[in-house]
Computed example of a mutant assay.
Amino acid sequence: MSNFNIQSILRENIKNLTPYSSARHEYTGSASVFLDANENPYGSALKQNYNRYPDPFQEKLKTALSKIKGVPPYNTFIGNGSDEAIDILIRAFCRPGVDNIMVFPPTYGMYEVSANINDVEIKKVNLTPQYQLDLDSIADTIDQNTKIIFLCSPNNPTGNSIFREDIEIVLNNFNGIVVVDEAYINYSRQKSFIQELTEYGNLVVLQTLSKAWGLAGLRIGIAFASQEIIDIFNRIKPPYNVNQASQQLALDALTNIDQINQWIRETIDERSLLVKNLLKFDFIEHVYPSDANFILVRTNNPLKIYQHLNQMGIIVRDRSKVSLCEGCLRITIGTPEENNRLLEVLKEFK
């Protein structure tokens, strides 16, 4: 929305917030003697020294990401996982006990958890049976206190991408923040919405280094948005929200893009092969199309299949109690060896 005014929905206490100013925040430049942050000057108990506080704004990592994503560093926020970005958005724009967010089940559960933690109402509009947006119901459900819409595409746990035209309709007609969560975008045929940041002032795109980049243990989440929204993130976040080890290891990983692209291609190939082989079992009723590194599989006995796999040391996700996922298991695409082991164990299921 070209005329979107972020200040119109920002909470008053956030407008007036004086952020914590850390030692490394106040000083920029080069120095050889650091006597400003009460650090241990002798080093750390590790081979790698971590006695100094990390860059609070992760400038080197943002610059490296900018070269890959084509998004300027000032349009980039890096958090302790995407969950931090989700939480900050709700705290920035939703007044507890007054405002609400909108989600579209079945979808990623942390939107609802973060809203509940912050005492913010959740309005739910189920996806259609084809796992797409119900635009009419969305329009009927939005009210004046709806401040954030969370869209997951490719969606978790269904695996499909939401129609791009439908997301654009929401962006063009909603006078609030629209979050497009693209945690699985590397496995999708769809284009990322980061290309639309200059078009929509109310757009926030979430991505992560946890999936395709294989860095789930480092907790590196990314939000791309207008500079005005990124400034709000930086005012609210803790001063050193991403540790030095995670920043450096993520920087190292970003130099291995050829390896990552190869793993993505292998995962997509394995996804197709696994779907083909799963459909040979008579207890597998349907495998939903996926643009992610997992598949949603409808079975005739999800609990017993889940328990059978569990007993054989294979863990999948039972989603059978989730709305519109009745009878379903969510299966992450593993290595060829892991996928073959899954199929072998399923052959033993009676």
Rank of each mutant, 00 (worst) to 15 (best):
N100P: 00
Y74E: 15
P238M: 15
D140E: 11
T141Y: 04
F281Y: 15
N300K: 07
A31M: 04
H25Q: 09
S114N: 13
P96M: 11
K191P: 11
I142W: 12
A45H: 13
E266Q: 15
S21M: 12
P19N: 02
V120H: 02
D143R: 07
D134H: 08
S8A: 14
L61G: 03
E199F: 00
N145F: 11
R24D: 08
E39Y: 03
N202Y: 02
D231H: 02
G29V: 03
P239G: 01
K123R: 14
I314T: 12
C328A: 03
N310H: 09
F174T: 03
Y50W: 15
E59W: 00
S188V: 09
N155A: 01
S22M: 03
Y306N: 15
L135D: 04
I222W: 10
C94S: 11
T335M: 04
S114D: 12
W213H: 15
G97H: 06
N80G: 06
Y288D: 09
F283H: 03
T299K: 06
S210Q: 13
N118G: 08
I220G: 08
N310Q: 10
F163C: 05
A212N: 12
Y42A: 06
S246M: 07
S226K: 02
Q311A: 13
Y288A: 10
D269M: 13
F233T: 01
T76C: 10
N172V: 00
T146H: 09
N186L: 07
I122D: 00
P106H: 09
G334T: 02
V98P: 01
Q247I: 06
H308F: 08
D87R: 12
K47D: 12
L342A: 05
N234K: 10
I232L: 01
N241T: 07
F163A: 14
A37Y: 06
V316Q: 05
I6G: 05
N38W: 06
A250F: 00
T332G: 15
A245P: 01
G109Q: 08
S153D: 13
M102D: 04
M1R: 08
L342K: 06
Q247D: 01
E348Q: 09
N5F: 00
T141G: 07
P336Y: 02
N126H: 09
S21G: 05
E326Y: 05
V113N: 01
T198Y: 14
N172F: 04
L278R: 13
T158W: 00
Q307N: 14
D136S: 12
I90T: 07
I222M: 15
L254M: 04
K67L: 12
P157D: 00
S44F: 05
F174C: 14
W263M: 09
E182G: 04
Y108N: 02
L151T: 10
K347F: 00
F349T: 04
Q190H: 14
K347Q: 13
P19T: 07
I167Y: 04
Q247Y: 01
E228M: 04
N243L: 06
I331M: 12
R319K: 02
T208E: 10
E196T: 05
I88R: 04
S21T: 11
S32N: 11
F224D: 10
I117F: 11
E196M: 10
T76I: 14
P56Q: 03
W263C: 03
L251V: 00
Y53D: 04
K191V: 03
N80M: 14
Q190Y: 14
K47M: 01
G43A: 06
N160C: 11
I86R: 14
E266H: 05
S82P: 08
S188R: 11
L218T: 09
R341Y: 13
N175Q: 08
E26V: 15
